[in-house]
């Protein structure tokens, strides 16, 4: 259960968004991906879960389900919370008819409980707050017990307490499933609490690769600029290209 990425290149309309990216994540490990907006973080996750195809390079993932949570939840707005979370168990061809209504109710309630939610099964996504939508989308993503979990900005736009709930959840879920995880984030709290290693992207390249401790020591000038939230530094915020 691991992810191995080698010499990954992805272009959009002639512009190299990812240029020769290599890294590995082992099972039981969480890799944090940081970088400015537009640096290709979401693109990496989409390549790994097969939503996009690479122009060159190799992605190897060991067998098992890959789950991904999206930056803006991506809950099905025509289904209620119960139907959203049970969606893969009900609709995936290999699971069709395998779970009774009772099973599903139990599984959904359990998953909601771990995320600090209850009695919202009948609500529609538009009736939930952003943080609740995010948590419901996590429950939906992991209901099939995936071996690889990719989180795209799981804590963006959440209050500190909700963030902590989610960070702890990412860690405990990883331990429970012995999963391989990647977390795209801009938040230092998430980096500190939920990741083991970090890669940092800038202009399509990896400019920092190391453990979270090394990252937080800020000896790398790129890491330092990110942590200090400094305008001055090796990275030009007003990227022109």
């Amino acid at each position: 259960m691991s992810i191995i990425v080698q010499n990954l290149v992805k272009e959009f309309e002639g512009k190299k968004v990812l240029d020769d990216i290599s890294f590995t994540v082992n099972s039981g490990e969480t890799l944090g991906v940081v970088g400015f907006s537009g640096s290709g973080k979401s693109t990496i996750l989409k390549l790994i879960c097969g939503l996009l195809y690479a122009d060159s390079g190799k992605i190897q993932t060991t067998k098992g389900d890959i789950a991904m949570t999206f930056q803006y939840s991506a809950l099905f707005d025509f289904l209620n919370v119960f139907e959203n979370i049970s969606f893969p168990l009900v609709e995936r061809p290999e699971f069709k008819g395998k779970y009774s209504k009772k099973d599903l109710e139990r599984i959904v309630a359990e998953n909601l409980k771990i995320l600090g939610l209850k009695d919202i099964e009948d609500k529609y996504p538009s009736e939930l707050s952003g943080g609740m939508q995010k948590r419901v989308s996590f429950a939906r993503a992991i209901v099939t017990k995936p071996s690889i979990i990719l989180y795209d900005e799981p804590t963006a736009g959440l209050d500190p307490v909700s963030s902590t709930i989610i960070e702890d959840y990412i860690v405990s879920l990883k331990n429970e499933l012995n999963a391989t995880c990647m977390v795209v984030t801009h938040q230092l709290s998430t980096i500190k609490r939920a990741t083991d290693k970090i890669i940092m992207l800038y202009k399509g390249k990896i400019v920092f690769k190391g453990t979270t401790e090394e990252f937080l020591k800020a000896e790398n000038p790129y890491a330092k600029q990110f942590i200090d939230a400094a305008i001055e530094g090796p990275m030009d915020i007003l990227q022109e290209d």
Partner: peptide, 16 residues
């Protein structure tokens, strides 16, 4: 609107 809000991508990732 499902497509631009990633609902279709989410469905693909859920293997439906």
């Amino acid at each position: 609107s499902m497509s631009v809000t990633d609902q279709i991508s989410a469905m693909k990732v859920l293997r439906v």
